[in-house]
Design a protein around this nucleic acid. Sequence first.
DNA 1: GCTATTCATCGTAATATTGCAATATTACTT
DNA 2: AAGTAATATTGCAATATTACGATGAATAGC
Lengths: 107, 107
Amino acid sequence: MGVTKISLHTTEQIEIAEIAKVLAHPARVAILQYISKQEGCICNDIVDEVGLAQPTISQHLQVIRKAGLLKGNFEGRNLCYCLDVERFKELQKIFTSFFNTTSASCC
Amino acid sequence: MGVTKISLHTTEQIEIAEIAKVLAHPARVAILQYISKQEGCICNDIVDEVGLAQPTISQHLQVIRKAGLLKGNFEGRNLCYCLDVERFKELQKIFTSFFNTTSASCC
DNA sequence: GCTATTCATCGTAATATTGCAATATTACTT
DNA sequence: AAGTAATATTGCAATATTACGATGAATAGC
C-alpha cells in the first residue's frame, strides 16, 4: 500500500531508514556532494550542476533540510546553501554504529 | 514523475542511492539486524519477528538479495537466510568513503 | 499417492516519490 | 513603483513502493 507500518519497528530502525531515505536518490547525493565541495556557499547553480528543473531541486533540498543537513544564509537575494557538517557527521555515526553492530555472528 | 533520471548522475551517486534504498525501510533494517543477530540461520521467524505478512517480508528479502546481501541455504524444507557479511562490509566502505569525502570544506 | 509446511510470485489497492510547468514570494535594482 | 532574479509552493501526471490475499512450487512426512 505504499504505507509503512512504523508501529512495528524500533525507533532506531526508523531513524536509520529516515537517514537512508535522504541518500536514497542520486540527485540528493549529488546535491550533498556539490554543496560540500564548494569553497564558499553556492546558490542555484545546483540546478545547473545537477541538471534537474528548479522546482525539483528545491524539493530535494527540502528533504535534505528536513534531515537537518542544510544550512542556508541569504546573501543579497541569493540563498547560499551549506552542508551542516556536524549533523552530517552525526548521521555518519549512526550509520557506522548500525553497520558495525549488524555485521556480527552468522551461519 | 516517480521516475528517476539516472542519466544525469554519476555511477557513484547511483550506487550510493541504491545501497541507501535498501536501508530506507525500517522493515529491511529490522531484517538485516535480525538475520545477523541469530547464532545459526533463521527461516520464516522473520515474519513473526518483524510482524509483517509473509509475502511482504519475502518482498523485502528480495530487495536485500538484489543488493547482494543475502545468502540462503535450504535445510530440509526451511530456507535459512544469512547476511553476506563480506558484501555488507563492502557497502559500509562505500558509505564511509562517501561520508568522509563529503564532509569537507564549507562556508 | 496425499497432506502440511515453507517460501516465492502474482495481482491488486493504497500511498509515496519524482519531476515539471505554472505561479507565488521575496528581495534587490533601477 | 516597476522590473528582474532567485527560491519556494502548488498542482498534477507518471511511476515506484509497500502491503496483503490468493495462488503456486517444492519438499517433508505419512
